[in-house]
Design a protein around this nucleic acid. Structure first.
Lengths: 104, 104
DNA sequence: GCATCACATAAGCATAGACTTATGAGTCGT
DNA sequence: ACGACTCATAAGTCTATGCTTATGTGATGC
């Protein structure tokens, strides 16, 4: 997956919202859909795109498709961003704050 | 700048390449252009988009426009990504340890 | 003053992408 | 077996976007 593709995939607000829901818990396509004013095929297409980008993985169970985040798919984005963290003087402080929050 | 806009802006390979050139050194629009098989207006439009997203800043000097990276524009992206770093167990633990050492 | 240069803006075009409705392919309960 | 259900795929539409050529704006040098 190229960096361009990763960015394109994440440029869609619906897809980012899906990731956010999946970050909380594994979910089926229908469960993911509610809360969105979107057709079933539209959600299916978004899931296909996310899956193609390696950002989510699928577990088939009968007629249900359970999806969960595949965080390693975010690695290219992380690596890209790392190139610019040299420009963040306070980057260590930000991380420190983040980890402090996570400890709570 | 919304997260969606940031991702859209960075989804273009030319724009990311521009950022990479600017990460090395401040540069004029013409200097940025060479190496790209792209018209002058196209580059000008890309620069306008990057500027609109707060990812680069402009310094006017006579007829030249000098551009440089505005890394703070990447903050929304950084914050978004941080939400998923929780899924990176080993890396985050390493960072936690590192920062703990630095605190002593 | 005038040609040239650096860059921006306007307008038009062509492709990509997100959506829709319609339909297909399996799976489950009765 | 059959209808309901979950999800995927097909086909068509509409908008966004990245490109082009043409032109505008201001600065510079002779």
């Amino acid at each position: 997956m190229s960096e361009t593709d990763i960015f394109k995939v994440l440029a869609d607000p619906t897809r980012r919202a899906v990731l956010e829901k999946l970050a909380a818990a594994e979910m089926t396509a229908t469960e993911l859909r509610d809360g969105f004013a979107i057709s079933q095929p539209a959600m299916s297409q978004h899931l296909a795109v996310l899956r193609g980008a390696g950002l989510i993985s699928e577990r088939r169970e009968g007629r249900y498709a359970h999806y969960r985040v595949a965080p390693e798919g975010l690695a290219p984005l992380h690596q890209w961003l790392a190139k610019y963290e040299a420009f963040w003087p306070s980057r260590i402080d930000n991380l420190r704050d983040l980890l402090r929050e996570m400890d709570q």
